[in-house]
Deep mutational scan, measured.
Amino acid sequence: CHSECLGNCSQPDDPTKCVACRNFYLDGRCVETCPPPYYHFQDWRCVNFSFCQDLHHKCKNSRRQGCHQYVIHNNKCIPECPSGYTMNSSNLLCTPCLGPCPKVCHLLEGEKTIDSVTSAQELRGCTVINGSLIINIRGGNNLAAELEANLGLIEEISGYLKIRRSYALVSLSFFRKLRLIRGETLEIGNYSFYALDNQNLRQLWDWSKHNLTITQGKLFFHYNPKLCLSEIHKMEEVSGTKGRQERNDIALKTNGDQASCENELLKFSYIRTSFDKILLRWEPYWPPDFRDLLGFMLFYKEAPYQNVTEFDGQDACGSNSWTVVDIDPPLRSNDPKSQNHPGWLMRGLKPWTQYAIFVKTLVTFSDERRTYGAKSDIIYVQTDATNPSVPLDPISVSNSSSQIILKWKPPSDPNGNITHYLVFWERQAEDSELFELDYCLKGLKLPSRTWSPPFESEDSQKHNQSEYEDSAGECCSCPKTDSQILKELEESSFRKTFEDYLHNVVFVPRKT
């Protein structure tokens, strides 16, 4: 048989008469490798580009789960590009990614509803959504962080984005990388972005840091009482949809009607710091009717980097990364020049730590249904340095008659930039024990000054392991946590139920 035959053949030295091919099969003959313009397919066939392209389009058009959109890589027609490569849609070739590779997620039936953290986790790592997304989240724990972890990498949506009755959302900033909504599939009414009845939605994105392009379709905003109209108009300008909307697409009466839409800028007039305090004062603000001013709200939190936005980490279910302080308005003076500047002394802060701070007014709604208010920009203030805590785990070892090696770990709280350490030492008198000992005694162990690591005695271990207080009263049991108490109650309830079950099964009433 021919060298490319495997198993047997019907005619000697003829690659077209093989029972099976050793390498690849091409047009009725066995070959060692697939010549151009053919590609290896499933490690035994040679196919042309049209064959591989037909497989790709067949799966793409069917949208069946589990099928493969075949691509070409290293002269092979394979189910998908290997790690580190992405497909070129024009020629199906796998090309190296520039940075992290995109991950295209194809949605069944063309859309997916995100109504819980669990459903959001199914899209973790996706960068391109081939379909439409509907966000409908009523509640949950730590929602802002969970949504950002699972949806934060999405850069492109081919269909539309719909935010509907998501009472738990305060902001859409968890879509931190969303840059493009194509609108290839539109919501009824030709809408590519749809926001309806979101009672706590206050911000779409921080438009000073976020760009969003909507290729096709219109915007729809109705019944978002805490979303200011200025935020919607800003989205029109940034996304390129200005002029597409009709009169009733953006409701003037049901958007922002319960919001404090600040239209003035508060400026800080005085800032002073110490290692654990920050004193702030800002310019006074009074609405047209000074009785509408209820006070100020001061927001602050630790910020290692200057990239904080107002609604980071917030949701309507209680999660809030900001510390909020309510401040009463100052006494009002008739003389504008003698107006008191409101302020606040922030206490209990960490030394040498940068804080993000902003302040906003708290006002009631005027009778004319106009909203007044003022808010400052987010500023960054760093507390002063102070003395560091003591170095940890000092170790001293003498390696000769004239040297001592000293080692330690950095302090747990540096409280500033540590530039150097101060080492103090003092000579001590020799131990009298060394002169009084009889060095001729056998088995004498000389006193040693070398360091030995501390260890816990058996008594201390027994005390720590004991669940009861000892007789001397030195140790006591740790208080039980809520989960331990709940577990004990469940076990007790189970024992009672099981005992009742045994009584009912074992003891049967005697027939009379």
Rank of each mutant, 00 (worst) to 15 (best):
E146V: 03
G139L: 03
I157W: 00
D377R: 11
S260L: 07
R370M: 01
S119M: 08
E109W: 15
K267M: 12
R244I: 07
N141I: 10
T213N: 11
E184Q: 15
S398Q: 09
L252G: 13
A356V: 06
K407M: 11
L280H: 03
A144H: 15
L266T: 02
Q121I: 04
I250S: 04
A316L: 10
P388I: 01
S260G: 01
R244S: 05
Q203Y: 15
A195T: 12
F311A: 12
F193D: 04
N190G: 13
G189S: 12
L123T: 05
T371Y: 14
L186F: 10
K267T: 11
N399C: 11
N200V: 14
P351V: 11
D326G: 14
L161T: 06
A120Y: 05
N211W: 11
R138D: 03
T323F: 13
Q121Y: 03
Q245E: 13
G139P: 00
Y285T: 02
T254S: 13
L151W: 00
V128Q: 02
L331A: 14
G140L: 15
W207H: 10
E187F: 07
D326I: 14
N255C: 10
E246I: 03
P288T: 08
G348K: 03
G256L: 05
S401K: 12
P391E: 05
L345A: 02
L172T: 14
V397T: 14
W322S: 07
S116K: 04
V238N: 02
T323K: 13
Y305R: 07
T309M: 03
L266E: 01
E236W: 15
E231L: 10
L331Y: 05
A149Q: 13
G131A: 02
I278T: 13
W408S: 00
G373T: 04
N150R: 04
E155I: 08
M297A: 02
I135A: 05
H210L: 12
K234I: 13
V170K: 08
T371M: 00
Q306P: 15
K360R: 05
E310F: 13
Y300W: 07
Q354V: 06
K218C: 15
R179P: 03
L294E: 03
P287L: 04
E368A: 05
S400F: 06
Y160W: 12
V170W: 08
I137G: 02
L345K: 08
E146H: 14
T127M: 15
F175V: 08
A145I: 12
D249F: 09
T113E: 07
T241A: 14
E156A: 05
R370V: 03
G295P: 02
D328L: 06
F268G: 01
F311Q: 09
N130Y: 02
G159R: 09
E187A: 09
I154G: 01
N334P: 08
F175P: 04
A303T: 10
D328A: 14
H210A: 09
S208N: 05
G240R: 09
P342K: 04
I154T: 07
I154V: 09
L406V: 11
I357S: 03
I379E: 08
G189R: 10
I378N: 02
E264G: 04
L392W: 15
V363D: 04
R179D: 14
L133P: 01
P287A: 01
E231H: 12
F311I: 06
T185C: 08
L143P: 04
P336T: 07
T254Y: 11
L204S: 08
E231Q: 15
I114W: 04
T127Q: 14
N224Q: 07
Y372V: 08
G152W: 14
K103I: 07
C317D: 09
I395A: 05
P394I: 03
T386M: 06
I405A: 03
W344C: 09
F299K: 06
D249P: 13
I134H: 00
E231F: 14
D206S: 08
V381T: 12
I232N: 03
Y305W: 14
D315I: 11
L252M: 08
T383L: 02
D292Y: 06
H106K: 11
R347Y: 04
F296P: 00
E187Y: 03
L266H: 01
S402V: 15
L178P: 02
P351E: 03
I181V: 12
D276M: 15
E302R: 14
Y300C: 15
R370L: 04
S208A: 14
E283G: 09
F193P: 03
Q216E: 00
M235V: 11
P329L: 08
P342Y: 03
P342H: 06
P410T: 13
I129L: 14
G159I: 01
R247N: 08
I378Y: 11
Q121R: 13
K103D: 02
H341I: 12
L280Q: 00
E262M: 02
R347D: 06
L204A: 15
L298Q: 01
N200L: 09
T118G: 15
P330V: 05
L143Q: 07
Q314V: 09
L186T: 09
P388Y: 05
L108H: 11
S338L: 14
E262F: 04
K103A: 05
L108N: 15
W344I: 00
A144W: 10
P287M: 05
V238K: 15
P411V: 08
L143A: 00
D115Q: 15
E236F: 13
P304I: 11
S171K: 11
M346E: 08
E231R: 09
N141P: 11
P329A: 08
K350W: 07
K226F: 02
S319L: 09
Q203M: 12
A259E: 02
N198D: 05
H222Y: 04
A374D: 02
D335E: 15
L212E: 04
P304R: 10
S319T: 05
V128S: 07
L392N: 12
N307D: 15
M235Y: 15
I379L: 10
K253L: 14
E111S: 08
Y223L: 03
G189L: 15
A356K: 05
S119Q: 03
V390P: 15
D292T: 03
Q203R: 12
T323Y: 03
Q121V: 00
L331I: 09
K301S: 05
T254G: 14
V397H: 15
R369M: 06
P288W: 07
C228I: 02
G189E: 15
Y223W: 03
C317I: 15
Y355L: 00
C126P: 00
A385W: 04
A195K: 00
L108E: 06
K234G: 13
F174I: 13
L153T: 13
A259W: 05
D249A: 11
L153W: 13
E237S: 05
E231V: 03
D312G: 15
L180N: 07
G139A: 04
K103V: 02
K407P: 00
H222Q: 07
G159T: 03
N198W: 02
K218N: 15
K112Y: 00
L178F: 09
L219T: 14
I327Y: 06
S321F: 14
L252F: 13
D115L: 03
L178S: 01
E155T: 09
G343S: 08
P394R: 07
F268I: 06
T309F: 14
S338C: 06
E122A: 15
Y191K: 08
A149L: 06
E283V: 13
R370A: 15
W352N: 03
E302K: 12
P330F: 11
F365Q: 12
S260E: 02
L123A: 07
V397M: 12
N399I: 12
T353W: 05
E156G: 02
C228F: 01
K350F: 09
Y191S: 15
P225H: 03
K242T: 06
R347I: 04
L252I: 10
L219R: 06
G295N: 05
D292R: 02
I135S: 05
N307K: 14
E246V: 12
N387H: 11
N224W: 11
Y167F: 13
K218P: 15
P304K: 14
T273E: 13
